[in-house]
């Protein structure tokens, strides 16, 4: 090697200019009317963002700030003047002059029905946000009748699309046995509202592993590995990002699941502390959930630029030794 011309390392490098970041074109503003109020939002903003900017609480289920909106739950629908159907606030962009109603009779009916449909077909016992929404919109899912008997193991996983054989009686549900095939995850698809978030987190929005996808069709649609292969034979790398985005507890860390089964899971006695992952040098923020001086779960904040809520297997699960050394 030859570095004769190298600067003397003993002399500190002087302070340089501040980095120049690419110029951001100032977004032009779009004026719309929402619930009779005039709202001005940057071009490209969604109606959801517009609503939130003036304090209108728009309910969402499939929307998450760190994922591409898929607008499938339809809980956030609003009424736009001139549009035949309601539009999803989470993905519809504000256009100049739009006149939007966020709690018209039509909007409230659709939201109530969406809630009733979901709650009458899915176990929401670990999704507390539903209770709040149901009260708010006066949803009465029980009016669709008693639930039909649950599916047998793999029954929903092997159903082919096309003609169905309706159950003798009762409201069809997605109830089915829990899938436990590994030490880290539990999949309880009887709690799945098919919001696509896990598929997005496993896919291009974060992990790009594509271990799961939506399979089946219609009411038989479901989240699945290929041929319902156990996770341990699938592409899954146990980053837990699907669990991180699941809104209903259908996907759950095994530790949490077992504590819930044992009746020892108690969020009111848990603390959450943000710190940095002890493994590689990327610097992922971990939110450490501690109950009785033991780590019970690790998540990551969505608003964190490095992780955007996503972690890898080590950050997500590599804390066991801290509990074990006690």
């Amino acid at each position: 090697m030859n570095v004769q011309n190298a600067p003397d390392p003993k002399i500190p490098v002087p302070r340089g200019p501040l980095p120049i970041l690419p110029a951001q074109r100032p977004a032009s503003m779009v004026e719309i009317t929402m619930d009779g109020k005039s709202v001005s939002v940057p071009q490209g903003s969604t109606l959801l963002e517009a609503a939130r900017s003036i304090g209108i609480d728009t309910p969402t289920l499939c929307f998450l700030q760190n994922l591409t909106p898929v607008n499938v739950c339809r809980l956030c629908v609003v009424e736009v003047e001139g549009s035949r159907a309601l539009v999803p606030a989470c993905s519809r962009q504000a256009e100049p002059g739009m006149v939007v109603q966020t709690h018209s009779e039509r909007v409230r009916l659709s939201r109530r029905l969406v809630l009733e449909m979901l709650v009458s077909s899915v176990d929401i016992s670990t999704a507390p946000q539903f209770q709040k929404y149901m009260r708010r919109f006066g949803a009465r899912p029980e009016r669709f009748g008693e639930a039909a008997p649950p599916a047998a193991t793999d029954e929903r996983d092997t159903a082919e699309p096309g003609h169905h054989h309706p159950p003798e009686a009762g409201a069809a549900t997605v109830a089915q046995p829990v899938k436990i095939d590994n030490e880290l995850y539990v999949r309880d698809y009887g709690k799945c509202i098919l919001c696509y978030k896990c598929v997005e987190a496993c896919g291009v929005d974060a992990q790009n592993t594509f271990a799961i996808a939506v399979a089946g069709r219609g009411f038989g649609a479901r989240i699945s590995t290929e041929y319902n292969t156990p996770l341990t034979d699938s592409a899954c790398v146990y980053c837990g990002n699907c669990i991180g985005v699941c809104p209903t507890g259908a996907l759950m860390f095994r530790r949490e699941y077992e504590m819930r089964q044992a009746g020892t899971w108690d969020e009111s006695r848990q603390t959450r502390t943000d710190t940095i992952c002890p493994y590689c040098g990327v610097g992922c923020t971990l939110t450490v959930h501690v109950q009785e001086e033991r780590i019970v779960k690790v998540t990551s904040p969505l608003d964190q630029e490095i992780t955007q809520g996503h972690l890898c297997i080590k950050g997500r699960f590599g804390w066991e030794w801290v509990n074990q050394k006690k």
Binding site: T271, T273, D274, T275, I276, C277, P278, G281, V282, G283, T285, L286, V288, V290, E293, R294, I295, I306, W319, V322, K325, K326
Partner: peptide, 28 residues
């Protein structure tokens, strides 16, 4: 103590970001 979850301090990551580590639980 486990630096990352039982103590207070800072670490620096690969993009030179100094980040706070925090005590989430007491050491044994």
């Amino acid at each position: 103590a486990a630096g990352w979850c039982e103590t207070e301090g800072t670490v620096t990551n690969s993009e030179r970001r100094v980040q706070r580590v925090r005590r989430a639980l007491a050491p044994p």
